[in-house]
Design a protein around this nucleic acid. Structure first.
Lengths: 337, 337
DNA sequence: ACCACATCCGAAAGCGTTTTCCAAGCGAGA
DNA sequence: TCTCGCTTGGAAAACGCTTTCGGATGTGGT
């Protein structure tokens, strides 16, 4: 395959490569007619500027990298997909390059974040799926490009944190259960190293405290965001503690496992036991008369992250990153009176 | 930010850039000790070869692009995500670059596939989500890099088609319904321009024919792979045609909509009406006593596609692309006896 | 007729690599 | 001692593009 170069176009047009470059890049010091002629010719010749050449010439195009920690074969909640497509579309809308990265590369080669950024020539970085225990947090200071984390607060003040107000959302959800008349609310949490888990649990506790209720340590379990684990834990929990009349789950997936356990124990979701999930995954509305849940818009989170990083790169006015809203969606699994 | 270049390393090491380049690329004509010294120094200096520079120098790294047609904000079936992560991992495992592309770029700039490949300097291309009506099919002949399509047969014999045997899978699924004693089986298909729909319908008809049953044209509806549309169509279908005792759906999502319609009409899924879906999406096991369905492994499809394209690029022995298997998963929504 | 100035275009440098080719140094064999 | 060949390292070209700077030409004002 022979690539058409700028030289070919120049030769064909009978001008210098300088002129072709200027014409194609809309410089002012080239005759409008010449420009038109060259543009048409380039088009006809199927000329595509060599990206590497441009970069070398000093016109590198900007790239936002989305770094996903531990990309798994499936994505039951759709969170990763939503974020990914959001970032992707934000990049497209702003005419900036997008590239997907996974932490496997880091792990394999024992690389630092900084080296990764250099290697991929990143102009901006968005990270998702990390936990507060991850060692990459120490490396954030070295990074000198705009950077955002999704769903995790970071120690470095220069990095953007894109997330809903998880604490408040959990507070609202649990408050709703309380308003439904439920008092014995247990929580099925995710993991102790996920920042969102910490925040949601904190919101849960705050709501209970506000209602003057105490929370037994046994009534908070960690199911690692897994439906099967949640099933097992809830199955035992409900037998050990028959007084429980509601469950607040830190993800829909775990809520599904929980609901199954509830039914397998001969109780009814939505009457005997109220269940509230988190995320509003696509099939939440089909389960158990509909799963009451806290809706998060992952696509929007990704989009906002992409837009915000783009704005930082360009130094333009900030996108407001705090409008990533949540919403309590009430369905059959927990409905007031 | 000042990037460390090969020149910096050379200066620091007191050798020429040639020697550094050779040392780092493991050329034989450099003293082992010198090589070691340079490598350590480069490491210490955080030197990362400039990709554009390498490309210009003639050592471009290979890139496989995954082109997704019409990337949507959500991916309820998880198919796109599975394929994506599969390709991504295959690329990682083979040490080849991976890049995600969407057709929006094509549409926006009215570009051809070839131009896209040139622009991104692709060495290999994998396409997903396309339909037989898409105009890009005409452009396949121009592409001179290894190319694969997922879930769509292409006219060009040089491109790989990665897909399960949809016709056979549908045949098996419908045969199973027949073995369950069901005779009035309707089909909820996807779209007439999706290749998989055509194949699945063909399998459905073949199975019915093999059982000596005729298929009324009214008993095949197209719900565009959408759960809501499926709901509406099935809701009407079952009223117009009360004899129907089973439904074969071309996707789980549509099956879910269908099931809902069935229950809303006061009938029971799995007894009054058997339902078989397609895909085995993550929550299929939770619905209606479990959805009987044809399992596809999208991750594996992606991985196989990536591996196959890599093999073509390298000219090495072919990966066997025909082992992308399916499996009928029997659950409550359609169980024999 | 002359100068100032604007318009249009090209020569050449430079970006960071790889790679080809040549030279220097050295030991061994004649 | 001379030559041959091997080992090690460097000079320089090449890749495709952008950008700076200067040169050529034309135009208007004096």
């Amino acid at each position: 395959m022979v690539r058409t170069t700028i030289r070919d176009v120049a030769r064909q047009a009978g001008v210098s490569i300088t002129t072709v470059s200027k014409a194609l890049n809309d410089y002012s010091d080239v005759n409008p007619e010449t420009r038109k002629r060259i543009k048409e010719l380039a088009e006809k010749m199927n000329y595509v500027p060599n990206a590497a050449g441009r970069t070398m010439g000093g016109k590198a195009d900007k790239v936002i990298g989305l770094l996903i920690n531990d990309l798994k074969p499936t994505d039951p909640s759709g969170a990763v997909y939503g974020i990914l497509s959001g970032v992707c579309h934000a990049c497209q809308d702003n005419g900036i390059e997008f590239i997907l990265l996974t932490s496997d590369i880091l792990r394999q080669q024992q690389e630092t974040l900084k080296v990764l950024c250099l290697k991929k020539q990143l102009t901006g970085l968005i990270c998702s799926g990390f936990r507060i225990s991850d060692r990459y947090m120490d490396q954030l200071a070295d990074i000198d490009i705009p950077c955002a984390f999704i769903d995790m607060r970071t120690p470095d003040s220069r990095v953007l944190d894109i997330t809903i107000d998880n604490q408040r959302a959990a507070f609202d959800a649990v408050s709703y259960l309380l308003r439904c008349g439920r008092k014995n609310i247990a929580m099925v949490n995710g993991s102790t190293v996920a920042d969102v888990s910490l925040l949601r649990e904190s919101g849960y506790r705050a709501a209970m405290a506000a209602a003057g209720l105490e929370v037994s340590p046994l009534r908070v379990v960690n199911a690692n965001f897994d439906d099967i684990v949640a099933y097992n834990l809830v199955w035992r929990l409900l037998q050990d503690d028959p007084g429980i009349d509601a469950l607040f789950c830190a993800s829909d997936l775990m809520a599904i496992g929980a609901c199954r356990a509830i039914e397998d124990l001969g109780k009814r979701v939505g009457s005997d036991i109220f269940v509230v999930g988190f995320d509003d995954i696509p099939i939440a509305k089909y389960l158990y008369g509909g799963l009451t849940t806290v809706r998060q818009d992952f696509y929007r989170m990704g989009y906002v992250a992409g837009q915000a990083i783009y704005d930082r790169i360009e130094g333009t006015s900030k996108a407001h990153t705090d409008d990533v809203m949540y919403e309590l969606v009430v369905r059959g699994s927990a409905r007031a009176g």
